[in-house]
């Protein structure tokens, strides 16, 4: 091959790379994600301080404390919210923390939450959690704004509309400040109502989708949030922390499931995002090489 031909072949390569047909990218994405969904890699994690703050707070609660969990996710954001919710439920059940589930974003949310809770309650380590004994489903409240205001004013009265004020879970709860935390697992802007109405009665923990992180980090920095768990990575953080507290290596915990969707989705996610970074870099390098080649000739 002559020198000129070589240069030509080289520039053709960069040209292809610079204007790659999008379908090749799609194909690579499908292959990478399929591979890692079928064969997940147990990637190490670096737990973010925001997730750790919430985990430490909840983990430090006493047995029998009650928290309010507002489940505002449905199947459309299952990819991010399910991992967070599963890990949260595991932690609460293992620590014997009682909880009340409410929903304000979607009428279907309670059913989906119940499905997850019931499957986790059967696991070893979940202390055989029973509905109406260890946890209670308050269900869907259509007007979020009013619901939050009423919860802050008189939690018993508001939950009485769903007939659960006499449940054993509600024992000793006369005011919202008797609840040890309010945890919002959400895919929509429902948390804003709580910021405005909470009047400092209970610490708020937020588990949100990554899209919402930008608007909520300031509230964490300001101390209005006890902890902030962001996206699929946050779910993975929670699972990692669970595994640290209940390690497989300890025979007592060897049957526990610590990792589920969080880690399962994390390796495909990391590789898909790596693909994105690499493709951006490759596109730029190709552009640069072509430009330099253009200058040379």
């Amino acid at each position: 091959m002559t020198n000129a031909e070589e240069t030509k072949a080289e520039s053709r390569f960069w040209l292809t790379l610079q204007a790659l047909d999008r379908r090749w990218l799609y194909l690579i994405l499908v292959l990478i994600v399929s591979w890692l969904v079928l064969q997940p890699i147990e990637a190490p994690n670096v737990v973010s301080t925001r997730s750790e703050a919430l985990y430490d707070y909840l983990s430090g609660l006493d047995e029998g404390d009650v928290v309010l969990v507002e489940s505002n996710w449905t199947n459309s954001t299952r990819g991010e919210s399910r991992g967070q919710f599963q890990a949260l439920m595991r932690l609460l059940m293992r620590k014997k923390i009682k909880f009340v589930i409410t929903a304000i974003a979607d009428p279907q949310a309670p059913n989906i939450a119940r499905e997850v809770i019931e499957s986790i309650a059967k696991e070893p380590g979940s202390n055989n959690y029973q509905e109406n004994v260890d946890w209670v489903m308050a269900g869907y409240f259509p007007n979020g704004e009013n619901h939050v205001m009423s919860m802050v004013n008189d939690v018993r009265k508001e939950l009485a509309t769903k007939g659960i004020e006499d449940s054993p879970v509600m024992e000793g709860i006369n005011d919202l400040s008797d609840m040890k935390a309010i945890i919002n697992v959400t895919a929509s802007a429902t948390i804003l109502i709580w910021y405005e109405r909470i009047r400092n009665k209970a610490p708020i923990g937020l588990m949100c989708t990554a899209v919402m992180s930008a608007e909520n980090i300031p509230y964490f920095v300001a101390g209005q949030l006890e902890g902030l768990v962001i996206g699929a990575k946050g779910g993975f953080d929670f699972e990692t922390l669970l595994a640290e507290e209940f390690p497989d290596t300890n025979p007592e915990f060897s049957e526990y499931t610590n990792f589920e969707s969080g880690r399962r989705y994390m390796s495909p996610l990391a590789f898909a995002l790596m693909l994105l970074v690499l493709s951006v870099v490759a596109g730029n390098v190709a552009m640069y090489m072509l430009r330099r080649g253009g200058e040379r000739s």
């Binding site: 994405l29 990819g79 991010e80 990554a210 899209v211 996206g231 699929a232 898909a272």
Partner: peptide, 8 residues
């Protein structure tokens, strides 16, 4: 990040 999670 959110969009990729949904595809996964």
């Amino acid at each position: 990040m959110t969009r990729f999670s949904l595809f996964i």
